[in-house]
Write a protein that binds this DNA or RNA. Structure first.
Length: 309
DNA sequence: CTTTCTGTTAGAAA
DNA sequence: ATTTCTAACAGAAA
């Protein structure tokens, strides 16, 4: 499920647990996830060894985010770039109590992000655990059912940038760079429908299938609309919708798409705020008219034919 | 049983 | 050059 609010929620929750910890040992169970794409698979094993040697002995000094990427900053200036793609998760399990951690209030809960916990996933590692980091105070597990994600080592943040990982990315919606005028300017350069333009990350980053539809609903604009036909008022409404929906979703800890809860049930869940996502054919929560479902940019898209124009 | 669908996006195909 | 579609994979849903 990781779109920006989920990745940001994970970053925030994980930060407290991994900062200043030393990476004692790294186990790679699926080398292709740490060796980059487009390269010969023959290189996978040697790259996995490089990955281990590169990380072991270093300390995690920072955990940042750019778009949907997580960036671990290491003690020697090195960087570990992690993209969860569709099903990646990072779960931290403290050494003391297996799979559990004491919270401030003294109760026990797992630390997880990127994907909801299922009963069968509580015991780690499991069959979809592909990378294990042994840290000073516990283990960090990378799980990824569909194996689309990646974890890549770089000697510096500059190297990440020159490798083109962040090229073409648009504005960060949680940052002060995300102004209405800059959003309007970038949108004006694009062609095609809103769904396609939002999903391609070049105007504003972080919107995926869920938040794209939710933002469009909030703005009263159909995702089918060609961006060049939007009025200034509609562009403004879209801007306002983004700065309303995204921070709210982060505040609530992101969305769980399926109906499971986190183990302690305490974590916020933006899924309950969804107005249109997964609601095609159901009545609009505002006007009661049947929500329309279509396919746009290859993705299921839902909007209200009465409230969105 | 088989077929279709799914939170992402790089790279292929058009 | 630019835009659209598919592959990467596993599993849930139909």
């Amino acid at each position: 499920m990781p779109e920006l609010p989920e990745v940001e929620s994970l970053r925030r929750s994980l930060q407290a647990y991994v900062l200043d910890q030393k990476i004692l040992k790294v186990e790679v169970r699926l080398p292709k996830l740490v060796s980059g794409r487009g390269t010969k698979r023959l290189d996978d094993v040697s790259k996995a060894v490089h990955f281990q040697k590169f990380l072991q002995g270093k300390t995690i000094l920072s955990l940042e985010r750019r778009a949907k990427n997580l960036i671990f900053g290491l003690s020697d200036g090195g960087v570990l770039l992690v993209h969860l793609k569709m099903t990646g998760q990072l779960v931290f399990v403290p050494k003391t109590t297996r799979n559990q951690v004491a919270t401030k209030t003294g109760d026990i809960k797992p630390v997880i992000g990127g994907h909801p916990i299922m009963e069968s996933e509580k015991s780690l590692p499991h069959k979809h655990t592909y990378v294990i980091f042994e840290l000073s105070e516990g283990n960090l597990y990378y799980n990824d059912t569909r194996q689309f994600g990646y974890l890549l080592p770089f000697v510096s943040l500059d190297e990440v940038i020159s490798a083109g990982h962040f090229s073409g990315l648009g504005l960060e919606p949680l940052s002060s760079e995300f102004t209405e005028s800059e959003f309007t300017r970038r949108l004006g350069l694009k062609k095609g429908n809103l769904k396609k333009v939002f999903l391609d990350q070049s105007v504003v980053v972080g919107l995926g299938n869920i938040y794209c539809d939710e933002v469009c609903f909030q703005a009263g604009v159909r995702p089918t609309r060609m961006v060049q036909t939007l009025s200034p008022e509609e562009v403004s409404a879209l801007y306002q919708a983004i700065i309303s929906v995204i921070p709210k979703a982060v505040e609530l800890g992101g969305s769980s798409v399926a109906n499971y809860l986190l183990a302690d049930g305490s974590r916020g869940n933006y899924a309950r705020e969804h107005k249109v996502y997964k609601r095609g054919g159901k009545p609009c929560l505002v006007c009661n008219q049947t929500l329309e479902q279509t396919r746009l940019a290859g993705r299921t898209t839902v909007f209200c034919p009465h409230d969105q124009h």
